[in-house]
């Protein structure tokens, strides 16, 4: 019985390992061929590159303004996530603790739109962005992301605050601690676990989002990584070695982020989905 189980375990492991190879195959092909010259690529596409030539990377680094695009994306994601966390934590906490009719009305107002898909509000949202004069503005776009994310995030914070004991806040209240001080010093630190999950899911979403920046950002100066990659593809349509280098470059930040925080990311995804 024991032996049978360990043989089974081995077979499954081998099949899973083969699956990983297939799953990573596109990435490996892109990586391998990004070091080749175009001629090398067309003679043998699945061979290893003869040497690690960086020419393609140097070429695309400049062509897609990599550093600028990276900084734009990072600025956008960081600012948006800060806004989302601060706005939603403040609101979620109060909405949970204050029990008035106004409070339940506001909570309902936030939650009811969670099912509206982005493509349905895309055009009126575009008009709103034009009206406010924030087209081509990364900071403005961060506020747009905040507006789209707060309902879900408030819902998560609201649920989490319910499980936090009220005694600590009460003690601080008796000590004459004001609302803002209580929130900053006592409540917010207690929300750490859910805040972490929220940061991770929102960073992943904003970093990899394409359609909204495509509509809002029309100037190259403000391009995000994905917009730059997309433009580069249009310009280099048959120069595959350059395109592959660009794809690797623009996937790299997220792959690094993943290799550093993999445990937290996986936990954050599972928590965010199963509790939300």
């Amino acid at each position: 019985m024991k032996k049978k189980r360990s043989i089974y375990s081995w077979i499954v492991t081998c099949i899973l390992a083969l699956g990983v190879f297939i799953c990573w195959f596109p990435l490996l092909m892109a990586l391998m061929n990004s070091f080749k010259t175009n001629r090398e690529l067309f003679t043998n596409i699945i061979a290893l590159p003869s040497s690690l030539k960086m020419d393609n990377y140097i070429r695309t680094w400049e062509k897609m303004h990599y550093l600028r695009s990276f900084c734009n994306t990072a600025f956008l994601a960081v600012l948006a996530v800060i806004l989302i966390v601060v706005f939603a934590a403040m609101a979620g906490w109060k909405l949970c603790r204050v029990k008035t009719r106004l409070s339940s009305f506001l909570f309902g107002l936030f939650v009811f739109s969670m099912l509206i898909p982005f493509s349905s509000i895309m055009i009126p949202l575009y008009r709103m962005i034009l009206t406010l004069g924030i087209k081509n503005s990364l900071a403005g776009l961060a506020f747009v992301y905040a507006g789209m994310s707060v309902s879900m995030t408030i819902f998560l914070y609201h649920g989490f605050v319910k499980s936090v004991p009220y005694e600590l806040e009460e003690a601080a209240l008796i000590d004459g601690c004001g609302d803002i001080k209580r929130f900053v010093l006592i409540v917010f630190p207690l929300l750490r676990p859910i805040t972490f999950t929220i940061i991770i899911t929102n960073v992943l979403w904003i970093w990899n989002d394409f359609l909204l920046p495509l509509i809002v950002i029309g100037r190259q100066q403000q391009y995000t990584l994905l917009l730059s990659t997309n433009t580069l593809f249009g310009q280099y349509s048959s120069d595959w070695t350059a395109i592959l280098a660009a794809l690797i470059l623009s996937a790299l930040p997220m792959i690094l982020f993943y290799s550093i925080f993999q445990k937290n990311i996986i936990k954050g995804i599972a928590d965010g989905a199963l509790k939300g």
Partner: peptide
């Protein structure tokens, strides 16, 4: 209580109204 609630909800409410609720409702008009 309601006043302090409104103060804390205001930032979230403003971005939510501007970039989600108003577009959703005005969409039906457009």
């Amino acid at each position: 209580q309601n006043l302090s609630l409104l103060l804390f909800v205001a930032p979230a409410l403003i971005v939510y109204l501007l970039f989600k609720l108003i577009p959703a409702i005005s969409g039906m008009f457009y």
